[in-house]
């Protein structure tokens, strides 16, 4: 049976933990709102950019002359996986689900005899993947989204990917990130960014009606593509990072909310035990006094 003092100490320690978790929840909630606005504001740009590339891709028709970033290198031997996680933990299953998906995909590719390379965005991806895939991790980007995701940060990741692609270090690049749906739900998404893949669930009737639309190009389409494709990749990455950042804050808010609630429950239980022990102690003392008086 723990003594009164032990109980008191435990209650106090749980209370201070609760203070921390509830503060973290509040911070996450504030950041979530900003990140969510950012992610939602950037969606139209990313979608239209994707639509534009899809339109050009559809009108080119002959893939042999098209840039490799659009048409692919012609083989699929080396895969680059970009794992988007957070730098910090304490956000529920946020990092875990991404890492699990990366592991699953990497194992599957390896079983098929492909080479896998992993680019980690966020410290947690590296920490968690290092054990199993130490040799495959190419690089790690940290500190993204600490003060909100900025386009330049996505650009720097995109530059690295472009550089590797041009050096022929991989054939297919897939980004694995959490798509933000609500503070409670994040959807793990695998998005292939190289070679470019038109979104399958394109509900836009306009585009569906005219896949072979003949566009005028100014300047030449090759020139536009040379400019547009790297840009599109950066934008898709930027979008992924924004979604990931919003998801992170959402996940952290939910996790901290339940942690705060659990701490509250624990405090109630401990307080009950504390009071019971206190009463038992008083009763025991009284019995001792009374029996002492009777013995006289």
């Amino acid at each position: 049976m723990p003594s009164l003092k032990d109980l008191k100490i435990r209650i106090n320690s749980v209370k201070s933990t609760q203070k921390i978790t509830s503060a973290m929840k509040m911070v996450a909630a504030a950041k979530l709102r900003r990140a969510q606005e950012g992610a939602e504001a950037a969606r139209p740009y990313a979608q239209r950019m994707e639509g534009m590339v899809a339109a050009i891709g559809a009108s080119i028709g002959d893939p042999t002359g098209a840039p490799k970033m659009l048409a692919g290198t012609g083989s699929d031997n080396t895969h680059l996986l970009v794992a988007c996680t957070a730098d910090r933990g304490l956000c529920g299953g946020f990092n875990g689900t991404i890492v699990r998906e990366v592991r699953r995909v990497a194992r599957k590719l390896k079983n098929d005899g492909k080479t896998v390379k992993i680019l980690c965005v966020g410290k947690k991806a590296r920490d968690l993947l290092r054990r199993d895939f130490k040799a495959d991790i190419v690089d790690t980007f940290e500190g993204i989204g600490r003060r909100g995701v900025e386009y330049e940060q996505a650009q720097s990741v995109a530059d690295k990917i472009t550089e590797m692609f041009e050096a022929g270090e991989f054939d297919i690049c897939t980004v694995i990130f959490n798509r933000f749906q609500s503070a409670m739900t994040q959807i793990v998404t695998n998005q292939q960014i190289i070679p470019f893949q038109a979104p399958e669930t394109d509900g836009d009737t306009e585009k569906a009606s005219g896949p072979a639309a003949i566009y005028l190009y100014e300047p030449e389409e090759q020139e536009i593509l040379a400019d547009l494709l790297p840009r599109n990749m950066a934008v898709q990455l930027f979008q992924a990072l924004l979604e990931s950042s919003a998801s992170e804050h959402g996940a952290r808010m939910t996790a901290m909310d339940s942690a705060t609630r659990n701490a509250g429950e624990m405090i109630d239980n401990l307080t009950l035990t504390y009071n019971r022990t206190r009463q038992a102690f008083i009763t025991k003392e009284l019995i001792e006094i009374i029996s002492g008086a009777e013995a006289v």
Partner: peptide, 13 residues
């Protein structure tokens, strides 16, 4: 580029 309603399909920089 002056873009008026009914412009033909165009993609440019």
């Amino acid at each position: 580029l002056g873009v008026l309603p009914g412009h033909s399909l165009l993609i440019g920089t």
